[in-house]
Measured scan of single mutants.
Amino acid sequence: MASQGTKRSYEQMETDGERQNATEIRASVGKMIGGIGRFYIQMCTELKLSDYEGRLIQNSLTIERMVLSAFDERRNKYLEEHPSAGKDPKKTGGPIYRRVNGKWMRELILYDKEEIRRIWRQANNGDDATAGLTHMMIWHSNLNDATYQRTRALVRTGMDPRMCSLMQGSTLPRRSGAAGAAVKGVGTMVMELVRMIKRGINDRNFWRGENGRKTRIAYERMCNILKGKFQTAAQKAMMDQVRESRNPGNAEFEDLTFLARSALILRGSVAHKSCLPACVYGPAVASGYDFEREGYSLVGIDPFRLLQNSQVYSLIRPNENPAHKSQLVWMACHSAAFEDLRVLSFIKGTKVLPRGKLSTRGVQIASNENMETMESSTLELRSRYWAIRTRSGGNTNQQRASAGQISIQPTFSVQRNLPFDRTTIMAAFNGNTEGRTSDMRTEIIRMMESARPEDVSFQGRGVFELSDEKAASPIVPSFDMSNEGSYFFGDNAEEYDN
């Protein structure tokens, strides 16, 4: 783990906690998980779902989305002020799938948001429990990260689609708070800032007046979040320049895209947490497990152990491969979309394939898809080993990566060399080191050039047997250095459309 220093740990961010010791953190995270579980059980009762239907990941996603929508204050306010045809701002819903006479049927349900809020609060001892809501947002974000390569979004903001390893959390809503900021990748933060800068260039009043003052505060806050992700002084200094700019424009845009590229080699610290679907927490609570009393951590053995003992089902389209669908969801559960496939294969105990080789589309089923041909199958979400999630980018030494994705962002704290394609990355730096950030740029390029592919990161860190909950005997895996390590390699994943 990167030293926490003055930073709060993510469990504290996750639970809005002030400084807590490890036991208190485990208890408050457990409380959050228990609340999600209780809410899910109650919703299944309301909807009269069978046990099997309640364990269907598509039903879980609909129920999670309903509660997130019920608590989305800004959108609710907007919907009330701008009524649109056929949208009731006070209601929320989605597809629920039921097994009827041996076939899967889709039923569109509609609930009062007020009623959903009441059920959620009741499951969370009367609190709004925003930490639990954020947790579900991060699960949705991790699922998107594993399912889609955001080529269009990258290109629109002047970045290269091969930089997708920097895009963790790119679909997280803005209201996801400190826990959300911690899991956002460098590219995601750059993209958010670039969008602001572009608006400022096109709209003279963007930075002016009372609204402009708020915009400015948001801009500086985002700059500080991004600065905190960088691990070298030169990158941090460049972020200070971007933040202090009187009138952010093209120079800042250039600096930010430069920094994003540099992060492929001088990786930023991005938190990883295993956020599971509500249909995993519900049955665990129903079986009598007391998360608050037992304590829970999002970055240790607990999620692995929970998945070892969970039964989750998914709808499967006619030509999809259930094992591939399982891999997709497994990666999402562990926030591992940008991790090295060699490491993932070792931990999972079966070969993890790149996205383009998977015969599976996303987990969600569109409303126009034919239910007649839908089957369902068990998702295999178990693992051979477990490993500690990392909050750091690993040290800054790398190795060759593949054509589709030119770097990785480690999820697990496991000893290995970190793949990246130096030639491709360095070719993108057209040696432009003039301007006010020239000395920093020169320094950053120097550090990137001296990074050695064969150097090892996370020295001495290994994986653990599932029986080793105290992480007492690390097993340090050895990897084939020459092997392909990137998930979005030469990829044809669908595009994420909101």
Rank of each mutant, 00 (worst) to 15 (best):
H140I: 13
S269I: 07
L358M: 15
I445N: 00
R19I: 01
I138H: 05
S69H: 02
E81R: 00
V476C: 10
P89W: 11
S326Y: 03
N321K: 05
H272E: 01
K77T: 12
S402P: 02
V194M: 15
R174Y: 01
G185T: 10
T433P: 14
M163A: 03
R267W: 09
S407Y: 02
T151I: 09
H135P: 00
L379H: 10
R150M: 11
S314K: 00
P83Q: 12
K351M: 12
R446T: 11
R261S: 05
P248W: 05
F488R: 01
M13C: 03
K214V: 15
R121W: 10
D455H: 07
Q12F: 10
K48I: 08
T23P: 13
E292H: 14
T157I: 08
G126R: 12
V194W: 01
S345H: 11
W330V: 00
L133Q: 14
P248Y: 01
T157Y: 01
S141L: 01
T437V: 04
M238W: 02
Q122L: 14
N101I: 07
K214E: 13
R391M: 05
R19S: 14
F464H: 01
N370G: 15
R267D: 02
Q415W: 03
M196D: 02
G54Y: 00
N309Y: 07
Q364L: 07
M13S: 00
P419M: 09
M189S: 08
L358N: 03
V476K: 01
Q311W: 00
R65P: 00
E244H: 01
M32F: 14
G435V: 10
I41Y: 15
Y111C: 12
Y385P: 02
R293I: 05
L166I: 14
D455T: 13
M191K: 10
V67E: 13
K31G: 03
S9Y: 05
V463I: 09
R305V: 02
P83S: 14
K198M: 06
P453L: 13
V270A: 09
R441Y: 07
G349C: 09
R342E: 06
S262I: 12
R441L: 00
A237P: 04
L381G: 00
D16T: 06
M481G: 13
I25E: 02
G35A: 09
S310M: 14
K236W: 03
G485F: 01
G282E: 06
K236R: 15
Q4D: 00
T433W: 00
Y385E: 01
F258Q: 03
A181V: 04
M481A: 04
T134Y: 00
R317E: 02
R199V: 12
S376Q: 02
R195N: 05
L381N: 12
K229F: 08
Y219A: 06
V414W: 04
G132C: 11
S478I: 09
S165Y: 14
T257M: 05
M374Q: 06
L344H: 03
S359G: 13
M447I: 15
D302A: 03
R156V: 01
R213L: 09
I41A: 09
P354T: 11
Y52E: 01
A332M: 04
E64A: 07
F488Q: 05
L307W: 05
I33E: 01
P283K: 03
Y111K: 04
T423I: 10
I347C: 11
Q58N: 15
K214R: 12
L166P: 07
R382D: 13
Q308D: 00
V329N: 01
R267I: 07
R175A: 07
N492K: 14
V343K: 03
E369Q: 12
R174C: 02
K470G: 05
Q149C: 10
N124V: 08
V299P: 10
M481E: 07
S335K: 00
I301T: 14
E81T: 00
L353W: 00
Y97F: 15
E80K: 11
E73S: 13
S335M: 03
I41F: 05
Y78K: 04
T151E: 03
L276E: 07
I445Q: 03
Y296I: 05
I119F: 12
E210M: 05
S407V: 00
N211R: 04
G177Y: 09
N492F: 03
E18H: 02
P410H: 11
K214P: 10
V155W: 04
E469W: 11
A403E: 09
R150A: 00
L47H: 09
R436Q: 02
G35D: 04
F258S: 09
Q364S: 07
V100K: 13
D255W: 04
E339D: 14
D421P: 00
D88F: 03
S50H: 09
F338V: 03
T215D: 01
C44G: 13
A471V: 10
G295K: 06
H272R: 05
S438Y: 10
N59K: 12
T433F: 14
P89R: 06
L256F: 10
R243V: 03
H334Q: 15
I138A: 03
L418N: 02
N483E: 07
Q399V: 12
A323K: 04
K91A: 03
R162N: 03
Y97W: 14
G5C: 15
A337N: 06
F230V: 12
P89E: 02
A263N: 11
L298I: 10
A179N: 12
G30N: 03
Y296M: 08
T373D: 06
P161I: 07
G180F: 09
T257R: 00
S478V: 02
G37P: 03
L56F: 13
D340Y: 13
V194Y: 02
Q12E: 05
Y281G: 00
F429C: 09
R400Q: 09
N125Q: 08
M196K: 12
G126Q: 14
G86L: 13
E494A: 14
Q364F: 09
V183H: 14
S402Y: 12
S359I: 07
F206T: 05
T433N: 15
I57C: 14
H334K: 00
G200Q: 05
L298N: 06
R208Q: 01
V186E: 06
S274G: 15
R204G: 04
M13N: 00
Q231I: 14
T134M: 00
G54P: 13
G94I: 04
V463A: 14
R118F: 02
Y40R: 00
F429P: 01
H324Y: 10
K348P: 00
M448A: 10
M32Q: 06
I365T: 13
E252W: 06
F258E: 13
M239A: 07
R117I: 14
A336Y: 01
A337V: 11
E220C: 11
E14P: 01
F489E: 04
G30A: 10
M163S: 06
T157D: 01
E292M: 06
S438Q: 15
K103I: 03
I265L: 13
S269N: 06
Q231K: 10
K325I: 03
R305L: 10
M426Q: 03
A278K: 04
L256S: 02
L79Q: 13
Q311C: 11
A27D: 04
F39V: 15
T130V: 08
S376A: 13
M374W: 04
K48A: 09
N124S: 07
M43P: 02
I316T: 14
L256Y: 01
Q327P: 07
F346R: 02
T151C: 03
N125C: 15
A263P: 10
A233F: 01
R221A: 08
R199W: 06
I444L: 14
L328N: 01
N370P: 00
T157A: 15
N432P: 14
S383Q: 10
Y111R: 07
L466E: 06
L298P: 11
S473N: 13
N417M: 00
R391A: 10
I57M: 13
S359P: 08
S245T: 15
G268I: 13
M222L: 09
G102Q: 01
Y111E: 08
P453D: 14
S345R: 09
N211A: 06
N202E: 00
N321E: 02
D491G: 10
F258V: 10
A278F: 13
L110S: 03
G212Q: 03
K48H: 03
N142R: 04
V299G: 09
S60R: 11
E320T: 08
E294F: 15
D302T: 06
W207H: 06
G228D: 07
S50N: 05
P354G: 02
M136D: 00
Q405C: 00
I41C: 06
D16L: 00
M43T: 09
F464V: 05
N430P: 00
M331Q: 07
Y78N: 10
D112N: 12
P173V: 11
T423W: 04
C279F: 11
T134F: 00
S310G: 14
D127Q: 13
Q399D: 11
E115I: 03
R208V: 00
G169D: 09
